[in-house]
Design a protein around this nucleic acid. Structure first.
Lengths: 347, 347
DNA sequence: GTGAAAGCGCTAACAC
DNA sequence: GTGTTAGCGCTTTCAC
């Protein structure tokens, strides 16, 4: 049904009556080929349906034009949006991606994940795994990884390139917005506290409250695990342990959805009796009831920035040996105000 | 900061005082190596931090143990869940993935997408792009693709291996469920009608209604584009053009979310005055208000089945030439009944 | 059990 | 402009 063997540069050379070297020159767009020769070679390439073997090429050159991507939690929308940004930018920059996904977030031995990438000689790696528990403890001794790595969404560390969204600042925005709206007793539903992002969001909420002279008690927050289901439980608990609460900052939109649902079923009027702000800015959030105020983070940009950084590092590392650097990018999230947090409708 | 050059089989051989051939035997777990020799070689491998170059290996062998994945719409949760299934199964079967994403759904020239995969000698390809418009017209002349391909979510075609969810059957389930609940005038909000999946879901809805002796008018459905935003518009239009409607089957959960929101804001009681059923079974759907009845499709299984099929095809194709086949799998969706479609609460 | 030679498909370095 | 030689890192013969 199909040709058993793919044509090689040798066969093209034979058909075009030139040396393999000349074929190589043509497929690499070198200038020093006579126009007629070039045409003859190109015709042969067409006829045979020749496609240069990138493996052989990578073997002799230093570059494979392949990037490794390590991700986790693709069944959730956040990591997927980041990956979307990664694929777009990689394609734009002429790179192909090798993909590996963590089976769980909290994994200590990364070798089974990166060895297949390294064995295939990726030029660089994008580490798009959120920092959870101690799954980034190895980050300091990656000295044996012979290619540049860019990390996403993790705590700053010396000598590592990190691209992340400023979760702390986002949480401050959310909390200050609620304070401005006249809410005084602002609770918080956190993400799983072994996540660095959850810690940052909680810290931002605390910081903003303290700055406003409010006390932050242990009973003012409960912990969820990002899922709507956990948000329901966490909110019900929070309601009972913090009866004075008149607003809640929820660490993601999915959990905020449950807050709205529970509020609705208990006849708690949002936003009059309870202000609600989420985090993430998922596309459905304007269609919650009431529409959800949220801190939007652009995960597409996060992914594309990471690719830019890693490609830059690859180019820098071309000369002799690669010296790790501490470049990096911080992306600011954006507060999107909707009905769920506005007591008197704005102009 | 790091060694400039990665160690090769040659250096291992030199350190272990054997030939490169013996090293090769050790890293390939061949039996015919003396235990002490093996130990000496393994020690050298450890010391040098040697990792076999998969590129050189693939060059000489027929297999690269790499699969190509072509996807689209990673910013949506559906394709991501499928990809999650693909990565898990690929990892389990010892394959690494090369990933390409369509910039848009409707693309005619696929060569820029698959050439980088073919050039890197993938053993097979998973085509996880939903069929939209004419973006699968080329499907019949992929004879020049020298490796097995498995297609996801597209219309049956002769000589192609296809794995898909039975959207028609799912729509029938949804509609028959509404009929059983006593709803009589069942409207439908479709997905974009250039999508094959939308067409199938609409056809299933029509078929079930006709089987029940109901007439299906043009005014009984409106078209959305999967987004919550479009769902809002489509539902408002449907309400006005089909005033007798007492239930609606919505082609995905995101659009159904807007239906619930609009119903809530117009004081239409769901499920008493209006039954609502969605499609997909996204994790948030139980937390809508009221909780959403939906047709759940397991996209994780979809992805993992596809990998199984393609690996099987790769193995089959090992012998001489590859003959395309028409194996394939149909996955049945599952109706999950929740409050949004149940007039009297069940037992 | 182990080694030597050849070559996978391509490009670098040189010749002419 | 074009061809020749060598070799990327590995595995496959086939010796011994």
């Amino acid at each position: 049904m199909r040709t058993n063997r793919r044509p090689t540069i040798k066969q093209v050379a034979w058909v075009a009556q030139v040396s393999t070297q000349t074929v190589s020159r043509v497929i690499n767009d070198r200038p020093d080929v006579a126009p007629e020769t070039r045409a003859r070679v190109q015709a042969a390439i067409q006829n045979l349906g020749f496609l240069p073997n990138a493996l052989a090429r990578s073997l002799i050159q230093k570059r494979s034009y392949t990037l490794g991507v390590v991700t986790a939690g693709l069944k959730y929308i956040g990591p997927s949006r980041t990956l979307h940004g990664i694929t777009s930018k990689a394609d734009e920059m002429g790179y192909t991606l090798l993909l590996k996904e963590f089976p769980q977030f909290d994994i200590s031995d990364i070798h089974p994940l990166i060895q297949p990438l390294l064995a295939r000689h990726v030029d660089g790696i994008v580490w798009a795994v959120p920092e959870v528990g101690s799954n980034h403890q190895w980050a300091n001794d990656i000295a044996d990884v012979p290619v540049p790595i860019v990390f996403l969404t993790m705590k700053e560390r010396a000598n590592l390139t990190i691209v992340h969204v400023d979760n702390f600042a986002g949480a401050v925005m959310a909390t200050e917005h609620l304070l401005e709206q006249g809410y005084r007793n602002i609770g918080h539903i956190t993400g799983p506290m072994d996540w660095w992002e959850s810690q940052q969001r909680k810290a931002g909420w605390e910081s903003a409250l303290k700055k406003a002279g409010r006390k932050v008690g242990l009973s003012h927050s409960t912990e969820g695990n990002w899922s709507s289901s956990s948000g329901e439980t966490a909110f019900i608990q929070l309601l009972s342990q913090y009866p004075d609460m008149d607003a809640v900052f929820v660490a993601n939109d999915q959990m905020a959805l449950s807050v709205l649902q529970v509020a609705c079923s208990r006849d708690i009027d949002v936003p009059r009796e309870l202000g609600v702000v989420g985090f993430d800015g998922i596309p459905e959030s304007p269609y919650y009831w009431p529409p959800l105020t949220t801190v939007s983070q652009d995960q597409y940009v996060l992914g594309s920035k990471a690719v830019e950084e890693v490609v830059e590092a690859v180019k820098r590392s071309q000369g002799e040996k690669y010296v790790s650097n501490d470049h990096g990018t911080v992306i600011m999230p954006e507060l999107i105000v909707r009905k769920s947090s506005v007591r008197q409708s704005p102009g």
